[in-house]
Nucleic acid binder design. Sequence first.
DNA 1: CTAGGGTTAG
Length: 688
Amino acid sequence: MRDYHCLKKQKTTFFSSSLIPTPLSPIPSILFFLKPFSSNPNPNPNPNPIAIPKAKPNLSVFFSKCIDKSSVYSWNSAIADLSRNGDFLESILAFSSMRKHSIKPNRSSFPCAIKACGALSDACFGKQLHLQVLVTGFEPDIFVSSSLVDMYAKCGELGDARKLFDGIPCRNVVSWTSMMTGYVQNGAAREAVLLFKELLAEESRRGGECLVDDVAIVSVLSACSRVLEKWVTRGVHGFLVKRGFEGELGVGNTLMDAYAKCGDLVVARKVFDGMDYKDVVTWNSMIALYAQNGLSAEALGMFSLMLKDRDVMCNAVTLSAVLLACAHSGALQLGKCIHVQVIKMLLEENVFVGTSVIDMYCKCGRVGMARKAFNRMKGKNIKSWTAMIAGYGMHGQAREALEVFDEMQSAGVKPNYITFVSVLAACSHAGLVTEGWQWFNAMAIEFNIVPGVEHYGCMVDLLGRAGHLNEAYDLIKQMKVKPDFVVWGALLGACRIHKNVEIGEISARKLFELDPKNCGYYVLLSNIYADAGRWNDVDKLRVMMKKRGLVKPPGYSLVEFKGQIHVFLVGDKEHPQQKKIYEYLETLSVKMQEAGYVPDTTSVLHDVDQEEKETVLRIHSEKLAVAFGIMNTVQGTTIQIIKNLRVCGDCHTAIKFISKIVSRQIVVRDSNRFHHFKDGLCSCGDYW
DNA sequence: CTAGGGTTAG
């Protein structure tokens, strides 16, 4: 039974049948090269360059000469086979070709041709076909009308789709499913769920006649995964168990996804574990869900289990999800191995995978490698460009980011909402106030994109850190959307840098409301008070934190070494090498102080005496990780560290000294951006 | 000779 879906979805053999005439034809070799890509389920965004579009129409014209031109059945199978093989344009061309031969289409001629229009989002030709349907009188046909509903929905014409749907006298499962999926794919998941309820009402009206099948369930579950309310998913889950759809592969796959998207990864995992038959989608979904939720270790663990399962092969989707896990955890070595796998599987030109590779290299500290992969990509789309811009931004290379942004526009790719977030973030990391304002203003006027909360967040950060605190505050006051914790957090952070108590208090008060469990804001405000010498207020804050049961989350740093991720906590004593690490840090400390390093203790609570403070500082996780990195890697290689919080001011200074003393390059990714330390300097120019 | 579904990137 496990192959049920394969059988159901098996492609027909239009091309490999006797219709391919001569061995000299170039087509078989194209088919040969196409084979590795045939598992790629997403042919649209990145058309395989080998399949030259210009050649295709000739293909179908050619085939049309080979078939019995006088038989409508031959035309129908040509249209259907082309459509099923994903050659939608040819399918449509075959239909027009048939009309040119004055063959009258019958009811079976339409559905596949209409579907092809939907697949290409070609509403224009779709409407022409609809007209022909009306002229030939096939509109009452359930196959024809259902495919029209699907086509209009896929072209984004939801209203027309619904009008047609409502006009179908005796709707079947397929009509209902087409309409539900139409809603889901147009961002109206809630309507899809409501339609499902209507469907159930219709069922009972018809005296219990079954109108639901596994595809309908999959459709409603995919709506659930976007509605984000667990009780809806639970309800559908109960229903599908009652109707006996639990064992269906596709149903299980979607159910997992729905639960996870509603926030319950544990139940999603239970569904996964309970599935007797798992296909590549099952595995991919579980890996992706873990990766998307930041559970990189679980995602990578799943991946290795998948590799052990001899019944499935990983594909583009798998690698894309695994690369995301690498990016999050900063696992550069593993990420490189996956990249090699990508190349071996000839997936380098797949936009999804290519963009994942770029993102992985950026987030693992290697913008240069990201750029190389980026340059090799052929079918760049908006996400690929944006990934590269964001990548340069997080490394503080705003000029490069803006250059890529420029190139993108020259290439005729329109920037979107997220592109501008990346551009403004790049400006804020580098303190480019003029450019920031320029693009912030341009996005609304020239690009018709209303600035959202993320854009304001970047601008407040940019202005605030540049010292324009009042300007930043005024910008918040002008916002039409409600400022979130990122916006106020940026302002508070800027107040800490520029020692502004007044605006700092305003921001902190907002933050205590918006994000009451985060004690980072208490600490920041407390630092502002401490700088101003207002110790009473510092104490008040401490009492408040205690009363609210807030504990500072422990800082930790990660280092990848020999394929393993080593975790260091603040003041860690658990690591097998801890004695050596502390000894090494001791000798480093002496050399650093000889070189002029003065421990900065301002970020430590004020009532600890000086000596104690220095000890506390010395064991910040990033310092432990740096020491471990130096001790275990060879001279000349880059040491790479990932920290969960922002790097502290003292550690930043210390690592600058260390990079010079041991002549090593040290890359630190903190929660905000990258710092590249070299020769006693940091790439952020101490601006962060 | 005919229609609907599940996993991936910024």
